[in-house]
């Protein structure tokens, strides 16, 4: 499969091929936006992200094969611009719990429900830059490198922002600190040829 960076490069001269970016990543962008700002806003964020991406395609760092971190970075800025909808969404979660949850056990579910409401409150109060890093990681399914690319910051900064945000979340949800374990997350980039 032609890599994203190649398609973006080709789209400089033949703009029509850029539609392929949409076909590859629109769903991921939507899901990330829906998690952060609710489904009502997600349609618009999804559409707008690709318009912005198309306009900025010659700024795409072609050293990266997957365009997803870059696209989620754009979506993050758009969500930030619509801060109102994210804040409203989080307030609603705090007030009445998450719209849907996947937890097998009923007792766990109640616990989780309470914790989620506490988490949503904590997320709302996080500094924007810590919130962006945390949610790109947890809901955008990016790895540290991807978050770094999306936010255009060094990986070390991602690490410290995530540590800080997670500490705040743990405290607010009353979770005892777990031992730091490398979960061996795999890259989302479809690389390796």
């Amino acid at each position: 499969m032609t890599s994203d960076n190649e398609i973006i490069r080709r789209s400089w001269d033949n703009p029509a091929v850029f539609a392929e970016m949409y076909d590859r990543h629109a769903t991921s962008v939507y899901r990330y936006a829906a998690r952060r700002a609710g489904v009502d806003t997600a349609d618009d964020i999804m559409a707008e992200t690709f318009l912005v991406a198309f306009e900025r395609r010659n700024r795409f760092d072609s050293a990266f094969e997957s365009a997803l971190p870059w696209l989620l970075g754009i979506a993050t800025v758009l969500i930030r611009k619509q801060r109102g909808s994210e804040a409203r969404f989080l307030r609603a979660v705090v007030a009445s719990g998450p719209p849907a949850m996947v937890v097998e056990n009923h007792d766990d579910r109640l616990d989780a429900d309470l914790s989620i409401r506490a988490l949503a409150g904590a997320i709302r109060k996080l500094p924007a830059r810590d919130r962006d890093a945390l949610l790109l990681y947890a809901w955008g399914d990016l790895d540290y490198e991807g978050v770094a690319l999306a936010l255009n910051i060094p990986v070390g900064t991602v690490r410290s922002r995530l540590n800080r945000a997670r500490r705040v979340l743990r405290l607010s949800a009353g979770i005892a600190p777990a031992k730091e374990v490398d979960r061996g997350r795999t890259s989302t980039a479809p690389i390796v040829r």
Partner: peptide
């Protein structure tokens, strides 16, 4: 469940 797993489960059902 740690805070990340909780966060992920929250986002899972979108």
């Amino acid at each position: 469940m740690d805070e990340l797993q909780l966060l992920r489960s929250f986002g899972k059902n979108v």
